[in-house]
Simulated scan of single mutants.
Amino acid sequence: MHYEFEFRGGLNNNYGFETELGIVYEVKFRPSNYLFGDETTVYANHIYEFIIEIVYNPLGKNPPLDKLISKTISEIIKDFYYKKDGSVCIYICDSSDGRQELRRRKFDDWFYSEEYGLIKIDEKIRDSKGNVYPISLIIQRENPYFIEIIDGFRKIAIENNENK
């Protein structure tokens, strides 16, 4: 069981759903062919940034735990990978409020609660101020560029952590 969701399409492959408390979420898969630094690779046009946003919250505070949200996001991920076979998603935990580790743990709980046929690889990047951002790569096991994509992802992490 999950909330009903709608694929709205558009440039960012938007999905939307509303919880029973009236909280509206938007899940996006933003094309991000530049993330690996080389927009000419054969897989560049299959790279997306995975974004989960609350676009309306009538509660005025952090939403309470709602297990249907994780089920809904799981179904959205399945739907997206079905529609865009061969896609690769990068999830970067928002750190604007210092709660990036909480977000990472919550996302891990969501991701590992389902069997997708997907693999998630985790890294962390550090900015010049020393702030650490958890990032994850989500890739299908059968992706023909599996090794190259994982190598590119790890290279991003290494490059972003050197000389900081």
Results as ranks from 00 to 15, higher is better:
I92G: 09
E26Q: 13
Y43E: 11
V42G: 08
I76P: 00
K106G: 14
N62I: 15
K83I: 06
Y48G: 13
K28I: 11
R104H: 06
R103P: 13
I77Y: 07
V55W: 02
I47A: 08
V24N: 09
V27K: 07
D97C: 02
P63V: 15
N57A: 04
I23V: 14
K106Y: 15
G16T: 10
F29Q: 03
F17K: 00
D109F: 05
G60E: 04
G22L: 06
I76V: 10
E53K: 07
I54S: 00
H46L: 11
S70L: 11
P58W: 12
L35F: 14
N45G: 02
Y82F: 10
C93L: 01
T19M: 06
D85A: 14
S87Q: 04
S87E: 15
L59S: 11
I52C: 01
I51G: 02
T19N: 01
F50V: 01
V27W: 04
T41Q: 03
S74N: 15
W110K: 10
R104S: 03
K71A: 13
D66W: 05
K83F: 12
P63T: 11
G37A: 00
C93M: 13
K61I: 10
F80I: 03
L21S: 07
D38M: 03
G60Q: 04
R103E: 02
D109N: 15
R104P: 07
D94Q: 02
D108Q: 10
F107T: 07
C93W: 07
E49M: 14
I92F: 09
R105V: 04
R105C: 08
E18S: 13
P63L: 09
F107E: 00
V24E: 01
R103I: 06
P31Q: 05
K61G: 04
N57Q: 09
S96M: 02
A44M: 08
K71M: 09
N14T: 15
S87Y: 01
S95C: 09
Y43M: 11
G60A: 05
Y81L: 03
N14Q: 11
Q100T: 07
Y25R: 02
T41C: 08
S74D: 01
R103Y: 10
I90G: 02
S32G: 05
D38E: 05
I23D: 00
T40A: 14
Y82G: 15
I54D: 01
F50D: 04
L35A: 13
E18R: 02
K61R: 13
R103K: 10
K83T: 09
D97E: 08
R30E: 12
